[in-house]
Design a protein around this nucleic acid. Structure first.
Lengths: 253, 253
DNA sequence: CGCCAAGTTAGGTCAGACCAAAATAGGGGT
DNA sequence: ACCCCTATTTTGGTCTGACCTAACTTGGCG
């Protein structure tokens, strides 16, 4: 009566003893204990293999595992660098998978809608809870945005920066990272959008409307302004890469 | 004298040709082309190694890479299974990194706040846009939840299910996956919470308040109910694992 | 003093082997 | 026939030792 428990490995998962796993934990510990500070080089593979009494195979697997978790930054042929992962790393870890999802038009749409949804909630939150310094930051970002209207290149930068402030106002470090993730994911599609001073001006005005809604402490107005802003932006870019329209978004169980 | 051409590659990062990378792409192609359908077993390592004329080392690295991207589901000592990644896979790919963040109390708080933020927006959305069948689903989930009040075990399940409906109403496949991710990340902390029929009843009533807000098309009321519900839940669990309170949430650049 | 070439280090890959667990085939009892 | 238990084969996980090549280091030359 062998009870090889492996039913739906729901949460615990027996996770048999993998050699690499133990090494991962040890290195993880050395990182979180500060023995391997952020930015430091990981010891050479051959060194680790002697130190832990394992083969290089296992060392390499452990390193790969840690790298995929974001604790190590392992460039090809370079010594891995220790990285204390934050929300940024967490989000960028998804990058690989997301890129796959973005290859379908529905993926872009879903992600964009998600962004709109969250950002709408953010402006609403800003309208309700923004502090003086938040308003100041927003005002400055808006001014920079206006000044950049003639130059599409810098307009894009100030555009992103303006939206970034909205994510900062929530005072949850997850949001700024999320913003970076959104922009980096959607940038490829976004870049194809033709830009012009006229178009920039329209977008700037939309930003100002959002700003006004926030300073007026009018969550509904601010949200409406943002929805219309991002909705228009979508309509403007969809034609550049979207075919009729797809169904059946990928969604696994 | 072969000159190692850095194929333009424009920028600095040579991104040299890694053998594993090429294999990754080939396998990726075989997956997306349907030759390796979702759920199929990946060929044995030794087979792949013959097929592509590479060593097993490279095969294993490629497999590991694909697994970390969610295209393969590679349990220990089992033949990898092909998985067409969806939003679920994308989110669960972050799991590893997130678990690290959750080891700090601030990480739990930030993630939980994020969840509250999003869920608040979701109930507001539900109050504004829920359709008849959404309301029906919600009502059923609520009824199941009420029925489970005496049994903490099943109450938890129906609790999660009730919240899940809120994520479904947004009609964006990202949200249900996000819900799964949230619950699986926060479950470990949540499990420590003592449960009792009395406590369950309080939570059920909170759910009903949310439901009422939605059917009354009262976004503010519904959101208020949810905020108070999740806020109370946090206060209830924080004591079980939280020390005084931490600062400096992890946040990398 | 700086630049370029030879030497050294260390990551990437390979080949072959062994172990143990999983998958499969085979045999015995009912 | 059918199922259960065991023997065999696969196959993933790990080890060893080696080689190649690109980084890194060092030292000589202009």
């Amino acid at each position: 009566m062998l009870d090889v428990v492996n039913p739906q490995d729901g949460a615990i998962s027996p996770a048999a003893a993998r050699a690499a796993d133990a090494v991962v934990k040890k290195i993880e510990l050395r990182i979180s204990s500060g023995e391997l500070p952020d930015g430091a080089f990981l010891p050479a593979e051959r060194e680790l293999m002697l130190e832990y009494g394992i083969s290089r195979t296992v060392v390499r697997e452990a390193v790969a595992r840690l790298a995929s978790r974001g604790l190590l930054e392992a460039r090809h042929r370079f010594r891995p660098i220790v990285r204390r992962p934050g929300y940024d790393a967490a989000l960028s870890a998804v990058g690989g998978v997301v890129s796959h999802l973005l290859s379908q038009a529905s993926g872009v749409k879903n992600l964009y809608d998600m962004r709109v949804f969250i950002e709408a909630a953010l402006v609403r939150n800003a309208a309700l809870h923004a502090r003086k310094d938040d308003i100041t930051a927003l005002r400055q970002a808006l001014a920079a945005n206006e000044k950049a209207v003639p130059d599409s290149q810098s307009f894009y930068a100030t555009d992103v920066a303006f939206h970034a402030v909205l994510y900062d106002i929530a005072r949850n470090p997850v949001f700024p990272s999320l913003h970076k993730a959104f922009t980096s994911w959607l940038a490829p599609q976004w870049d194809r959008m033709l830009r012009s001073p006229e178009r920039n001006r329209i977008n700037y005005l939309a930003h100002r409307a959002i700003f006004d809604g926030i300073v007026d402490r009018d969550p509904d107005g601010a949200e409406r302004a943002l929805q219309s802003h991002l909705g228009a932006a979508w309509e403007y870019v969809r034609g550049t890469f979207l075919e009729p329209a797809r169904e059946a978004p990928p969604n696994d169980g």
